[in-house]
Amino acid sequence: MVELDAVTRQFPNGVTALDAVTVAFAPATFTAVMGPSGSGKSTLLQCAAGLDRPTSGRVTIAGQDLTGLSERRLTLLRRDRIGFVFQAFNLLPALTARQNVGLPLRLAGRRPDRGALDRALAAVGLADRAGHRPHELSGGQQQRVAIARALVTSPAVLFADEPTGALDTATGRDVLRLLRTLVDEHGQTIVMVTHDPVAAAHADRVLFLTDGRCSGSLDAPTAAAVAARMTGLGVAS
């Protein structure tokens, strides 16, 4: 679903955030990306999602080569084919949950179908909260609304950057179980950047980065195995 081929990202200050990274993310899989601070995790996500352009190399999403796309075409691709979930929920406080979910469609000039919005909320367990505004929802419920908003356009891939970072442990695990369900029952492809071995253990595979390069992966991860690998990369548990 997503392929990076020899992707390098160098910044004007001389820092090489990604160094010839080649990796593929298969459809209907959940991949966690981990590594020490400054290893290139966020840069990998940004390049893979079309938010940043590599210095060299190629990124392909659902068969579409991003190389050479104009900013307009890249914006349309992100809008129609890519979902984003971040640590911050980024919900508009004056809008209900249903209206927040429908916002990407309105911004695209499309009239949201109420049934489709309600189905998106039902998929994240919030069918009975459609009329509630963000201040009437818990942090976990707000993140679920943000996930529903990301899913409403039926994206080819969902990119998540520390999606549980602002949540308490129990709520965070509820959100991670939801992401797991989206993969197992709905065939969603998810790529998640995280620093948490427990969060990574919900994925099918963990990809490790060090100094902008792939430094291995771990299939069917457990929290203990991920923590041990991270310790081996020089990161304190």
Rank of each mutant, 00 (worst) to 15 (best):
M192F: 05
N90T: 02
A227F: 09
T169A: 15
P163R: 08
F86A: 07
G14M: 04
L51G: 05
R98G: 01
Q141N: 12
G83L: 11
P163T: 13
R180W: 01
L182E: 02
V2W: 01
L45Y: 08
R180E: 11
V145H: 02
V59R: 01
L74E: 05
P104I: 08
N13A: 12
R133C: 01
G234T: 08
V175N: 01
A156M: 04
L66E: 04
G68S: 13
V101M: 02
T96W: 04
R149L: 05
V15K: 11
M230F: 06
V101I: 06
A160C: 14
L117D: 00
Q142N: 10
A227K: 10
G216K: 12
G234C: 09
V15T: 15
D161A: 07
L45S: 07
L182S: 03
G139K: 02
Q99Y: 02
A203L: 09
V145R: 02
A170K: 15
F30W: 10
T189Q: 03
L151T: 00
V175Y: 00
D204L: 08
T8P: 01
D113K: 12
G172F: 05
A26G: 05
S39W: 04
L45F: 08
V175L: 10
T181E: 09
H195L: 12
L233A: 01
H202M: 13
P93R: 04
L107W: 06
Q46K: 14
P221N: 10
L4M: 14
A28Q: 12
D128C: 08
T210N: 13
I147G: 01
T43H: 03
L76E: 15
V175K: 04
L92A: 11
A49H: 01
L179A: 01
A227T: 12
H132L: 12
P134M: 04
G68L: 10
G83S: 08
V33W: 00
L103T: 13
R58I: 08
G14Y: 04
Q10F: 00
T55C: 10
T210M: 06
D161F: 07
M34A: 08
G40I: 06
D219G: 14
L207M: 14
G212M: 03
G165Y: 04
A146Y: 01
T181P: 00
P197E: 05
G63H: 10
T43A: 06
A156F: 03
N90L: 14
S138H: 09
R72T: 11
T189G: 05
L218G: 04
T67A: 15
P54M: 09
Q188C: 08
R205Y: 00
T29K: 11
Q64F: 06
G14H: 07
V15Y: 12
F89M: 05
F159S: 00
T22M: 06
A116T: 14
G40C: 09
A32G: 05
G14C: 11
H186M: 12
L66Q: 13
G35P: 04
Q46P: 00
G40K: 04
T67Q: 14
D128S: 13
T67P: 06
Q141C: 09
A49G: 15
I82V: 15
H135R: 14
A48S: 13
V193S: 03
A228T: 15
P12L: 11
I61S: 03
V226S: 02
V235W: 06
H186Q: 15
V145S: 02
S138F: 12
T31M: 11
